[in-house]
């Protein structure tokens, strides 16, 4: 089916090609245009005789005694005038040839340079130059003062007495860390020193404090420590083991220095 359609299309194309290919070409030569000129009759001017001369007559007036001098008017003279333009005016059209426009000469136009400096307009001149005056007396140079910003030297004071008056906490030593034999010896010395039965004593702690110069001593059971106040003599005194104990029957505090290890 497509073959048929293609064939039909080819036949139609060939038919159209042949139809338009066989058309005769007729060359029409246009007739030249010749503008025709028609000649008309010349205008004729028929001369006619001129007007009659006017003649003026003088008339006397009697109204005035002296009379009025009469003026003689010059006579009119007729002149024959002819118009020559009519002769040259014809029906022929004069061909006016217009000169075609010619190309003008190209000329390079120089672009004027821009001004390098804008001109200031509207500058108002100073009305007058102020006069200068000179102060003859110079300013006095200020004197400088030096203030030393350094902080002054400080002197140190000895205040051992002041610090000894404050309570000094002494922590109890751990009895469990002591050698057993040493602790047995300490216990014996405690019984001897206090004169109490060992069963009636509760050891509160073993402390190392100065042998002398202890002015005050307080027990702090919550922290297992004692608070002591010292005198100046305590500074050089040897530190000795000190046992603090409580008597079970009445709660009284007992203490004694024990021999060092």
């Amino acid at each position: 089916m497509f073959g048929r359609v293609r064939g039909a299309m080819a036949d139609a194309a060939e038919t159209l090609r042949r139809t338009f290919a066989s058309l005769p070409v007729v060359t029409v030569v246009p007739e030249p245009f010749h503008p025709g000129s028609h000649r008309g009759d010349l205008l004729a001017v028929a001369p006619r005789p001129g007007l009659d001369l006017l003649a003026a007559t003088g008339r006397g007036a009697k109204l005035f005694r002296e009379g009025v001098p009469s003026l003689a008017l010059p006579p009119f003279e007729a002149k024959l005038q002819a118009e020559a333009g009519w002769a040259s005016w014809g029906a022929e059209a004069e061909v006016v040839r217009m000169t075609p426009l010619e190309a003008g000469r190209a000329a390079q136009v120089a672009v004027p340079p821009l001004p390098r400096q804008a001109r200031t307009l509207g500058r108002v001149e100073a009305p007058a130059c102020p006069g200068t005056r000179r102060i003859a007396e110079p300013l006095v140079h200020p004197g400088t003062r030096r203030l030393d910003p350094r902080l002054g030297d400080v002197s140190a004071q000895a205040g051992l007495e002041a610090i000894l008056g404050l309570p000094i906490p002494i922590r109890a030593e751990d009895i469990q860390r002591l050698p057993k034999g040493l602790w047995m010896r300490y216990s014996l010395q405690l019984v001897r020193g206090t004169g109490e039965n060992v069963r009636n004593l509760e050891v509160l702690g073993l402390f190392r404090i100065p042998r002398k110069g202890v002015a005050d001593l307080r027990h702090d059971p919550r922290q297992s420590r004692i608070l002591i106040r010292l005198e100046a003599s305590a500074v050089r005194a040897p530190r000795e083991p000190f046992i603090l104990a409580r008597r079970k029957d009445d709660g009284a505090l007992l203490s004694c220095f024990v021999e060092g290890s």
Partner: peptide
């Protein structure tokens, strides 16, 4: 090592 003072020095107030 017991916390017992051996020396104490202080400066005057500046």
């Amino acid at each position: 090592t017991s916390g017992i003072p051996l020396d104490f020095r202080y400066t005057e107030p500046i």
